[in-house]
Design a protein around this nucleic acid. Structure first.
Length: 247
DNA sequence: GGCCCTTTGAAGACT
DNA sequence: AGTCTTCAAAGGGCC
C-alpha cells in the first residue's frame, strides 16, 4: 500500500508545483479513490477506449477550468491535443497531429502525404510507422502560447532568441501561473497515455541526428544538470507550494 | 535539405 | 539512487 503523498517521479514537477490529482490516481492505482470534480471523465477514460465524445468533453471542461489562465491556451488547435483517425472509431481521416510521418515534418498536408504514399510500396508503408511525438511539457505549452506575443513585442524572429526571453519570463511567472501550465501539461500527458497506451519516449530516441555530447552540454548549459534536470541555481528555487485544488 | 541554436521539463539510459 | 542524455516547439541561420 503506497502511502498517501508518494508520487511517481514522472508526475512530480521540479518545483513540486502540481501534485498528483485524483484524476491521475485513476491511472496509477488499482483502487482509485473517487475523483471529486471531473470524475465522469476519469471514469470514462479508465473503463473503455477513449472516444471523441469523451475528449470533447475533456476539452470543454478543461478549457473552462483553465479559462482562468491569463492567456488562454488554444486547446482545439494544440497539435498533440487535436483528434483524428488515430482515435479508434473516429470518423475523421485526418491523423492525430501528434503523429507525424517518419520524415518528421508535421506540416505535410494530408493530400501531399497520400500522393507520396501512393508510390510507396506496401512493405515500405509497414516499415515506416508514423512517429508519435512526445507530449508537451509545461514550459513548451507556455512557449507555444506566448511565442507570438513575444515576437510581436520584440520584433525578433529567431527562435533561439525568443526562447531565451521566454525562459526568463517563465521564471518570472508566479507559482500560481506556472502551476496552471504544469496542470495543462499533466492533462496532456494523461491524454497522450490514453491515445497511445503502448507509446514510450524511447520510441523516438535516436530518430534525430544530434551533435556531440560535449558540444551540446557546453553550448546549451554551461554546466551540469542536477537530478531534477535543472541547474544548481534553479534547484535553489523557493519551496514548492500546495497543489491546485481547482479541477 | 537538414542540423544548430536556445529554453524547460519529462522520461529513458546509463553509472 | 543519482546523473546524464534525448526530445518535445519554433524558425532564422548556416553549411
Amino acid at each position: 500500500m503506497q502511502p498517501v503523498g508518494i508520487v511517481h517521479k514522472a508526475t512530480q514537477p521540479p518545483h513540486g508545483v502540481p501534485q498528483l490529482s485524483p484524476l491521475y490516481e485513476h491511472f496509477s492505482s488499482p483502487h482509485p479513490t473517487p475523483a471529486p470534480a471531473p470524475a465522469d471523465i476519469s471514469q470514462k477514460q479508465v473503463h473503455r477506449p477513449l472516444q471523441t465524445s469523451d475528449l470533447s468533453g475533456f476539452y470543454s471542461l478543461t478549457s473552462g477550468t483553465m479559462g482562468q489562465l491569463p492567456h488562454t491556451v488554444s486547446w482545439f488547435t494544440h497539435p498533440s491535443l487535436m483528434l483524428g483517425s488515430s482515435v479508434p472509431g473516429h470518423p475523421a481521416a485526418i491523423p492525430h497531429p501528434a503523429i507525424v510521418p517518419p520524415s518528421g515534418k508535421q506540416e505535410l498536408q494530408p493530400y501531399d502525404r497520400s500522393l507520396k504514399t501512393q508510390v510507396e510500396s506496401k512493405a515500405e508503408k509497414e516499415t515506416k510507422k508514423p512517429t508519435i511525438k512526445k507530449p508537451l511539457n509545461a514550459f513548451m505549452l507556455y512557449m507555444k502560447e506566448m511565442r507570438a506575443k513575444v515576437i510581436a513585442e520584440c520584433t525578433l524572429k529567431e527562435s533561439a532568441a525568443i526562447n531565451q526571453i521566454l525562459g526568463r519570463r517563465w521564471h518570472a511567472l508566479s507559482r500560481e501561473e506556472q502551476a496552471k501550465y504544469y496542470e495543462l501539461a499533466r492533462k496532456e500527458r494523461q491524454l497522450h497515455m490514453q491515445l497511445y497506451p503502448g507509446w514510450s519516449a524511447r520510441d523516438n530516441y535516436g530518430k534525430k541526428k544530434r551533435r556531440s555530447r560535449e558540444k551540446h552540454q557546453e553550448s546549451t548549459t554551461g554546466g551540469k544538470r542536477n537530478a531534477f534536470g535543472t541547474y544548481p541555481e534553479k534547484a535553489a528555487a523557493p519551496a514548492p507550494f500546495l497543489p491546485m485544488t481547482v479541477l
